[in-house]
Amino acid sequence: MLESSANRELANFAEIDRLVHEPARLMLMALLYVIDSADFTFLMNQTGMTWGNLSAHMSKLEEAGYLEVEKSFKGKRPNTMLRLTPQGRTAFQTYRQTMKQVLDGLPE
């Protein structure tokens, strides 16, 4: 009985979304989760990431369908805003719940 319960809890680890779990992406997703949208410069300022690093993580999130890119023009300047998709929001919420379940059961 105890063993099966432990197995069930260990199985929770397998449910963790690795794409969200990576610290830099987790930071980005948390930030984009609480705001509506932001451009590269704002995200770089808030997270302290370099342009290359941020770009690489953004591409992965976009490929997974967690992020949408909105390109427009502000006057003559191109303006790119990044926003979490509903799928991305759900993925982040699920990640939080899973982590809560996994970590809450751990002894001090």
Partner: peptide, 11 residues
């Protein structure tokens, strides 16, 4: 704006 970047906040 050019230094800090653009941001839109939630509802």
């Amino acid at each position: 704006a050019p230094r800090l970047g653009q941001v839109k906040f939630g509802p």
